[in-house]
Design a protein around this nucleic acid. Sequence first.
DNA 1: GCTAAATTGGATGTCAATGTCCACTTTAGG
DNA 2: CCTAAAGTGGACATTGACATCCAATTTAGC
Lengths: 174, 174
Amino acid sequence: MQLISRTSEYALRAVIWLVQEPALSQTTRQIATGTRTPPDYVSKVLQLLAKAGLVRSQRGLGGGFRLAGNPAQITVLDAINAVDPLERIHTCPLDLKAHGTNLCPLHCGLNDVMFQMEATFAKTKLADLLNSDTPSIPLGIKLKTSRHSPVPSDPVGSAMPRSRSATSKRLAKC
Amino acid sequence: MQLISRTSEYALRAVIWLVQEPALSQTTRQIATGTRTPPDYVSKVLQLLAKAGLVRSQRGLGGGFRLAGNPAQITVLDAINAVDPLERIHTCPLDLKAHGTNLCPLHCGLNDVMFQMEATFAKTKLADLLNSDTPSIPLGIKLKTSRHSPVPSDPVGSAMPRSRSATSKRLAKC
DNA sequence: GCTAAATTGGATGTCAATGTCCACTTTAGG
DNA sequence: CCTAAAGTGGACATTGACATCCAATTTAGC
């Protein structure tokens, strides 16, 4: 499971490209080449971004796309919501009866995760992504969750750069 | 985007069913009917759970599946890892150069979200899911993220039962 | 106003996750 | 031993996200 769709990734690549390119207008081809995305597909994504008002399109010779706002104000959430909006959990997918009309603790926790994710998207501006001063993490950490750990396990807490701001002490205080 | 796959959901439904059913052994059909999952598919899922050692299978007349451990110790993470293991982000999908060999702040934040999710899965025991005393959230809140909020937006912070334990003040301290 | 460069929109193709089907094997009970 | 009830394994079908193709439309510049 990945946290965001390919479509959202493409949308982000495209708007970030528009931010960093000096030229006023960028054609689909330029954007696709520059961001290494499938041209015909990113074209559809750009149309969604245009419908949402994040970018403005210009048809005809010399046309293309340009950003419709301030990179320091447009958020990652804006771009994602334009093409593949975040959803919320409304009913327990586990179909448990123990908790009546309530979400079970698991999905309560997942709701919490969703909130954190949305908060991250909402506070990250496009400009932040191009600023090399913003905090980042070194790559090459190659960690894959403890596959095949039978009954009792504790995959969290293994040796790795934790950094969690707060792993919410309890399940959640829903 | 959903946070966990259907396959994982089915795996969870199945093991939870085994926890709550008094009978020693449950046939695939019983499990499928009881959990409202596609019989032939949940059959495959059960095989994965068996391979991982979470459940034990018995062939032949009178056979079926039973849990291979203590519901108070088996975690949601165990079940999920058995059928559809969590992955980590290794390279920046946005392909940004600004951060050199590092993850950009966005994916740094997503890594953080992943950690929280894994922590939630790891601390939630199967027994917890059947205990109606564990904290849960009322349903019917019908909130869908602010679709169509053009350039400047602040979808987080709208009126709703927040409850976030800590929305990590900064992007993350990677 | 022609033409070439561009977006737009619809139809179609591909692929992995999900779901179904069926023949085979195992096993308890008569 | 035979039979019916079970899991096992492999092949096939469906579906939605992703990707491609192409005809129609718009528009700057000659």
